[in-house]
Design a binder for these strands. Structure first.
Lengths: 193, 193
DNA sequence: GTCTATATCTCGATAGAC
DNA sequence: GTCTATCGAGATATAGAC
């Protein structure tokens, strides 16, 4: 494995383990075991654990933008794109029920730790908010930003209780309620451009 | 300080530190420093860190039931009691913005750790759900349980984004939206018993 | 019931051979 | 670029004096 590939593999594995077990709980030994490299080798690629965290957040940022571009590509209308956002609760349902939302749980952990990377982690929320607001704006909604925050808020609330209760029926019911809410706030003439 | 008082003080301090810094991040040294006792003295009162966690959860359960009884005492009508629930987002606003919701963040952390106490922590949610459902039932709502879960879900979502964005205006706006939602689902004749 | 002292382990991080 | 060996700090937990 070449150097750049090793680095990528470290970040990819750390991303998964930080999500599944939490940032602080995940040790270098855990990552080294999963990547199958020696612990000491980390410090050729990263100077500290915090640097790995920065790389993980940057990786997630990249992955999020790729995901949003995919949603735009798969769904021609802004309304369908909002549904794509709602459906992540179902698409990632199993992982959310065990580990929560990767963005929300990381932001909360870093907030408790008063960690310097907290703002960067919250930046992942910003990307979603900006994208959602764009869709609401395209649908002719006033206060698109507030609507975006409201939808994200509901997604976070559902994810939290999904982690607590692990009840797919609850998630399905709340997803349907989110769709109904979207239909209620979108101006009626927005379907006829 | 007598033995029982020391135990109570340990649990009270651990409760706060587990909330503010997370369960795993909080060390015995942290608690000992705050309580001003020697580290070794812990093991007279508790056999392990997990036992302290059990005691903290039991303490929170007790505190929650006391809080709900207080809300019932302060608010004669079920509608006003629901508002009392909504207002915790404002009453505990500063702590939520820094540390998240104590119930949600603990449940998520224990879920990531696959910790045995996860179910007990989720039990704190149960108490809120049961109490909220009781209020909706008293107001003549069908599906009181689903309405209770929906309100709790929204409270959790707002708490999560409050931790991320630390924006009191967002919290106030969503609290108002929660009140509007309650007024929308409560049968109109429920105000005239 | 509380203390000091310490055992044992694991953590993040470093040094240096190859 | 990857390895082994190891450091010092801090973690949980134990032993035993008082």
């Amino acid at each position: 494995m070449r150097g750049a590939e090793t680095r990528t593999e470290i970040v990819r594995t750390a991303d998964r383990l930080f999500y599944e077990g939490g940032f602080e709980h995940t040790s270098f030994a855990d990552i080294a075991g999963a990547v199958k490299i020696a612990r000491g080798n980390f410090y050729y690629h990263f100077r500290s654990k915090d640097e790995i965290l920065d790389a993980v957040i940057a990786r997630r940022m990249q992955a999020t933008q790729t995901l949003l571009a995919q949603w735009e590509n798969d769904n021609p209308t802004p309304r369908a794109r909002l549904s794509a956002f709602v459906r992540i609760l179902e698409v990632n349902g199993d992982k959310i029920m065990r580990y929560g939302c990767p963005v929300g749980s990381l932001a909360t952990e870093l907030s408790k730790l008063a960690h310097a990377a907290r703002a960067a982690a919250v930046g992942l929320f910003d990307v979603f908010v900006g994208w959602l607001a764009e869709q609401f704006r395209a649908l002719g909604c006033a206060d698109a930003e507030a609507l975006a925050l409201h939808l994200l808020m509901r997604s976070q609330g559902v994810a939290m209780l999904a982690t607590a209760y692990r009840d797919p029926q609850f998630v399905a019911r709340e997803m349907a309620a989110m769709e109904d809410w979207i239909d209620g706030v979108v101006p009626a003439d927005s379907a006829t451009p």
